[in-house]
């Protein structure tokens, strides 16, 4: 029953709040081949557009999960509604993750079609990087109750990777460009922990 209410809430959310984000994420995927070569790349070269650009879909898709309730009074209203708030957020998050996986998948398959040397690892690696950027945004936006701060943290993390590169050791999200895949599992664990801790924070501290 609760699931049904939440699903209905999410449907109206998508129409009113999230559609621009979904379209922007799709636009990133569509625009990438126009600016960057995606054909006949070897494994490392193929990781460049995937990790540096496609991973930004994570920031776009996961950061704004709490956006509709940023306003204090709206949040109180949501609290009093039949649909459990955290379940609603979880559904939004899952849709974001699903879209992220689909868009990453499309990018990787398109590159494969263009004779680039991409493997399943490119898919999981890119998805992990995107999830990392997204979960940092999701975490900070959730805890600070301000989506702008979410974007700021996520993009600062991106900029830090852009500049400091492999000095970040296991948290380097562009590692496949250097031919290394080991970082990805750490990134994935970190992302998962961040997402989980937001829900814990809401449940235990904010008592939703």
């Amino acid at each position: 029953m609760a699931l049904c209410f939440s699903a209905r809430t999410v449907y109206s959310d998508i129409r009113h709040n999230f559609l621009p984000h979904y379209l922007l994420a799709a636009a990133i995927v569509v625009i990438t081949p126009l600016f960057f070569s995606v054909s006949e790349l070897d494994s490392r070269q193929a990781a460049q557009p995937l990790e540096m650009i496609i991973s930004l879909t994570g920031t776009v898709l996961l950061t704004p999960v709490f956006m509709p309730e940023q306003n204090e009074s709206i949040r109180d209203l949501i609290r009093s509604k039949k649909a459990p708030y955290l379940l609603t957020c979880m559904i939004r998050l899952l849709i974001g993750l699903l879209l992220l996986a689909v868009l990453t998948g499309i990018s990787v398959l398109y590159m494969k079609k263009c004779h680039s040397q991409v493997t399943f690892r490119h898919f999981t690696g890119t998805a992990a990087s995107a999830m990392a950027l997204g979960s940092i945004g999701f975490f900070t936006a959730g805890v600070s109750n301000n989506v702008i701060i979410g974007y700021m943290a996520s993009l600062l993390c991106y900029i830090l990777n852009f500049i400091a590169r492999d000095k970040l050791s296991i948290f380097f999200i562009f590692s496949m460009m250097n031919g290394s895949y080991d970082e990805k599992k750490w990134i994935f664990v970190l992302s998962f922990a961040l997402i989980l801790s937001v829900f814990m924070y809401f449940k235990l501290i904010r008592k939703y």
């Binding site: 306003n71 204090e72 009074s73 702008i148 701060i149 700021m152 993009l155 600062l156 900029i159």
Partner: peptide, 23 residues
């Protein structure tokens, strides 16, 4: 200069939209 060309936008955007966000 690398970061000052982008991060001030967050502080400015947050300041401008705070009025609306906090009604």
């Amino acid at each position: 200069g690398i970061i000052l060309a982008v991060i001030p936008v967050f502080v400015a955007a947050a300041l401008v939209t705070a009025d609306k966000r906090t009604k």
